[in-house]
Amino acid sequence: MLTVLIDYAAGNLHSAEKAFQLMAREVDGGDVIVSDRAEDVAHADRIVLPGDGAFPACMTELKGQTGLFDAMVESVETKGRPFLGICVGMQLMARTGFEYEKVPGLGWIAGDVRRIAPSDPSLKVPHMGWNDLVIDRPHPVLDGIATGDHAYFVHSYQMEMADPAHLLAHCDYGGPVTAIVGRDTMIGTQFHPEKSQAAGLRLIANWLTWSP
């Protein structure tokens, strides 16, 4: 079993790598590597797309490395390999992003990415810190994670859902903020599971043992 964290020059890969390696050891989940090589992604049994940064820049970087984008899309769409997008990696799963400019996403989740607009104008953006999850839909990767558990968010844009069937969990920040999305073999978390202590590590372990 090989899990590949895709390195496309976006974000805190070291801590994500360590969190996935730790949980892989605990659940006998095989090897976890960070790679920017298309052939590694093509051979991966599981794919993680992390990400910090702006939607357009991240999509450009992802598509800028030879074969990487195509290998990822083929593994997920054609081979049905389990996929986990984190933060901007989750947002890239949407149909369209509207950060700075309109950019097509992967189109895997029925939603669009727009700036967070809290109903209370005193609420600061970025939405930064620990917020409590509201579970909307049971899912194997949420085993042992309950409404009220905290996760660590840091983002200024969020996925606005067009199809509530793809929404697994949200939180409240002057209105609903999409926290976890999912469809078929794909999961995305707006928060950082690798930074969310117990609940985050639990989600990673669940995902590593998930057989969709």
Binding site: G11, N12, L13, H14, S15, K18, A19, D52, Y152, V154, H192, E194, K195, S196, Q197, G200, L201
Partner: peptide
């Protein structure tokens, strides 16, 4: 970052975009 799965901010002596990239890669959030 190998042992603490929580957000980490690092400051002090950060001067360039490359400094930021190196710290993010090392484990800073």
């Amino acid at each position: 970052a190998e042992q603490c799965f929580m957000p980490l901010t690092i400051g002090g002596g950060v001067r360039t975009v490359d400094d930021v990239r190196s710290l993010l890669l090392a484990g800073a959030d």
